[in-house]
Amino acid sequence: MSTSFASALNAARDAAGAQNYPQGALYVVATPIGNLADITLRALHVLQMADNVACEDTRHTQQMLRAYGLDKSGQQLIALHQHNEAERASQVIDLLRQGKRVVYVSDAGTPGVSDPGARLCAAVQAAGLRSIPLPGASSVTTAVSVAGIVSPDAQGFLFAGFLPTKSAERAAAIDQLATEPRAVVLLEAPHRIEEMAKALAVLGERPVTLAREISKQFEQITTHAAQALPDWFQADSQHSRGEFVVVIHPAPRSAEHDPREQQILELLLAELPMKTAVRLASQITGGARNRLYDLALALRSGSDAQAQD
């Protein structure tokens, strides 16, 4: 065990030990995405008390557990990955029915988010058993938190995961995402990131944030116009190293409003209260409610001024 975590185990027992941890439950635990210090105290406590730990790679997980000073035998570890998830889910359910506490961890981050775990949780739910999530590290939310996404419509973001690996399918997927008004979050491996960058170049000036090696020594987070991404990768071979989170920012909205939006809003304002007219106009046109409300105020002000004349 690293001496850095010796006191963390005691702190975990003190901070989380008094809480209730039901037997016969699956604990879905987020683990660090790079920096071991990003583990939570509750995760450490649950990993200490777990009867079994299901995981993507038993060697990787055993190494992580030993770094924290947690002693689990090989018999307590269950290999559960994308190729055997359905089969191993039955084994986990049998253990839960015996009253065991079973933890599931992916290799890094939050299980079930582009990692195995979703089928396991679905099977546990179908069996009438309980899954308990323990929040923690996530490369998606970590990248989004510093990407500086400014959306005129304040609609959040779309997580699209990994794009297709075949070039034609990837290009078709990007064409579809290009019309998405929200920010789009993608994941990509280092051996495919430059091909993704070339495909994203069709988005022109649209800003794209690249986050690589998050929480690790050589973490790098940078934002460029989509059309400049291929040159950025070509400038330094180090730029393509590490796992990537790619955030495509929302497309800038034109300063001019859509004439159709104004026409529909004018018709609705003639018959309905402003809030109702704005809500219906947003549903009909897909426009942002805040922007339509500002337009409605301008139209109502202009109408009042004409009436006074």
Rank of each mutant, 00 (worst) to 15 (best):
L47A: 04
A226H: 08
R182S: 10
F244D: 00
V245F: 01
E219D: 08
V113I: 15
F218G: 08
I149W: 09
L80C: 15
L36F: 12
T285M: 05
H81E: 05
Q48R: 11
V103A: 12
T58R: 04
L70Y: 07
Y293P: 13
T223C: 10
M49N: 07
Q63K: 14
V208P: 08
V146N: 06
A281F: 04
D175K: 09
D258K: 04
S73L: 02
G204N: 09
N84T: 05
L187Y: 15
A123K: 05
I149F: 09
S254Q: 14
A37Q: 13
G17T: 05
G34L: 07
K216P: 04
E194G: 00
H45Q: 12
Q283H: 07
D51N: 09
A37P: 13
A25K: 04
R300H: 07
S106D: 00
A211N: 08
A197C: 05
Q63C: 05
V202P: 01
P32K: 01
T40K: 00
D236S: 09
T61V: 07
D94G: 01
G136Y: 12
R97V: 03
A50W: 01
H239E: 10
R101H: 02
G242H: 02
G74C: 06
N20T: 08
G69Q: 03
L177R: 06
A305E: 13
D309K: 12
A108W: 04
G112F: 00
S240N: 04
L210S: 07
V92H: 00
A173E: 11
T179K: 15
P116R: 08
E195Q: 10
T223S: 13
A307R: 14
V208D: 03
Q48D: 14
S138C: 14
A16N: 04
H239V: 03
D258Y: 06
D71G: 08
S73W: 05
N10C: 08
Y68K: 04
S303M: 12
A16M: 07
G117Q: 06
T141G: 11
P230F: 11
L158R: 11
S151N: 08
S139P: 09
L129F: 06
E85K: 04
S215K: 02
G99R: 11
V144Y: 01
Q76S: 15
L292N: 01
D175I: 03
M49F: 02
N10F: 03
P135N: 14
I33F: 06
M49I: 15
D294A: 15
E205C: 05
A201I: 03
R88Q: 12
E180Q: 14
G17N: 07
S73C: 05
G156R: 07
N290H: 12
A226E: 05
A37K: 12
S7L: 09
L129N: 10
Q82K: 11
L272V: 01
H249F: 10
T141N: 10
I221V: 15
E87T: 10
S303N: 09
A160N: 01
T110W: 00
S138N: 11
Y21V: 07
R253D: 02
G24S: 04
K275A: 12
D236N: 13
G69F: 01
M1Y: 08
N20Y: 03
L96I: 00
K100R: 13
